Amino acid sequence: IINNLKLIREKKKISQSELAALLEVSRQTINGIEKNKYNPSLQLALKIAYYLNTPLEDIFQW
C-alpha cells in the first residue's frame, strides 16, 4: 500500500492529534498508519478521506 496520509495531512495543516480527534482514534493509530505499521479498515480509510476532503485513492493506493 502506498500511503500519502502524512503528506496530505501536513499540506492541510492538520496535526496527528487533530485528525485523531476527528476520527475518534488515538494519535498513535494515525502515527501507525503514516508509518505503514498499521493498515486502516475500509471504514477508517473512508473517514480519513472524508475529513481531509481528499479522494481515497489519492491517500491510499493499493
Rank of each mutant, 00 (worst) to 15 (best):
K6Q: 11
K12A: 14
A21Y: 10
Q43C: 13
S26L: 04
L42K: 07
K35D: 13
I1W: 14
Y51S: 06
Q43D: 14
I1D: 06
T29V: 14
F60S: 00
L19Y: 01
I48Q: 00
E10F: 06
L44C: 05
N3A: 04
P40T: 05
K12M: 11
Q61S: 13
S26T: 10
I33R: 01
L22T: 06
I59P: 01
L23N: 02
D58H: 10
V25S: 03
N4Q: 07
L23D: 00
D58G: 04
K47I: 06
F60N: 00
N3E: 02
P55Q: 07
L46D: 04
N4D: 04
D58M: 10
I30S: 00
L46N: 08
N4G: 05
N31R: 13
T29A: 10
E10R: 09
I8H: 07
Q16E: 06
K13W: 06
K13S: 11
A20G: 07
E18T: 12
A21I: 12
E34R: 02
V25R: 03
L5A: 03
E10I: 12
K11Q: 14
P40R: 01
A20D: 02
Y51N: 05
Y50D: 07
L22D: 10
L52I: 03
L22A: 15
A45T: 04
N4E: 04
E18Y: 07
I30H: 00
I59G: 00
Y50R: 08
F60R: 00
Q43R: 13
V25T: 06
Q16R: 07
R9S: 02
V25W: 02
P40D: 14
I14Q: 04
I59S: 00
Q16P: 05
L7F: 13
S26R: 08
E34W: 03
K11E: 12
E10V: 11
L22V: 11
L5I: 09
Y51Q: 07
K13M: 15
Q16A: 08
R27N: 07
T54N: 03
K13F: 09
A21Q: 10
P40H: 04
K11T: 11
I2Y: 10
Q61C: 11
N39I: 15
L52Y: 01
L7D: 13
K47R: 10
W62R: 09
L22R: 09
I1Q: 09
Y38R: 09
R27G: 08
Q16W: 03
Y38F: 13
L42V: 08
P55S: 10
E18C: 08
Q61V: 10
A45F: 04
T29R: 10
I2L: 14
Y50L: 11
G32F: 13
N31E: 15
S17L: 11
S26N: 10
L52K: 00
Q61A: 09
E24Y: 07
N39H: 15
S26Q: 06
Q61M: 09
K47P: 01
K47D: 06
Y51A: 14
I30G: 00
S26M: 04
P40E: 01
N4P: 01
K6L: 07
Q16N: 03
Q28K: 13
P40C: 08
N36M: 11
L52P: 00
Q16K: 07
Y38A: 08
L56G: 02
K47W: 05
L19T: 00
Y50S: 07
I48D: 00
N39K: 14
K13I: 05
K12Q: 14
V25C: 06
S17K: 13
V25E: 05
T54I: 07
N39C: 15
K47Y: 04
K37V: 14
S17V: 12
L5V: 09
T29G: 03
G32D: 15
Q61Y: 14
Q16Y: 04
K6N: 05
S15T: 14
I8A: 07
L46H: 09
L44P: 01
T29C: 15
Q61L: 07
L44E: 04
L7A: 15
L42I: 11
E24N: 14
Y38I: 14
S41M: 05
I59F: 03
I33P: 01
K6E: 10
Q16H: 04
E24T: 07
K11A: 14
E10A: 08
P40W: 04
N53Y: 05
S26F: 03
Y51M: 10
W62H: 10
I14E: 01
A45N: 01
K37E: 14
K47L: 08
K11S: 15
D58K: 09
I30W: 02
K37M: 15
E57T: 12
F60T: 00
V25F: 03
E10D: 09
Q61G: 15
K37C: 13
R27F: 10
I8L: 07
L52A: 01
R9I: 04
E24K: 15
S17H: 13
Y38S: 07
F60M: 02
I1M: 14
I1L: 14
V25P: 01
S41E: 06
L52W: 01
L46R: 10
Y51I: 15
F60L: 03
N36G: 15
I1P: 10
R27S: 11
I33L: 08
L42M: 12
A49F: 02
L52S: 02
E24S: 13
E57A: 11
F60D: 01
Q16D: 05
N31L: 11
N53F: 05
S15L: 06
K12C: 10
R27W: 15
L22K: 12
L52F: 07
E57R: 10
E57L: 08
I48E: 00
N36L: 10
I1R: 13
K6A: 11
N31F: 06
I8G: 02
Q16S: 06
Q28C: 11
Y38T: 10
P55E: 06
K47G: 07
A20P: 00
L46S: 07
Q28W: 10
E24G: 14
A21P: 01
V25N: 02
P40Q: 01
Q28M: 11
L22W: 13
E10P: 02
I33F: 05
L44F: 08
G32R: 14
N36Y: 09
N4R: 11
E24P: 06
K11C: 09
L19E: 00
A49Y: 01
S17N: 12
L42A: 06
L46I: 13
K35V: 09
N39L: 15
I2E: 10
P40M: 06
K47C: 09
A45E: 02
G32K: 14
N39Y: 15
I1N: 10
L22I: 12
P40K: 01
V25M: 06
F60W: 11
K35S: 14
S26A: 06
P40I: 10
Q43Y: 10
L44W: 03
Q61F: 12
N4F: 08
R27Y: 12
I48W: 03
K13H: 12
P55T: 08
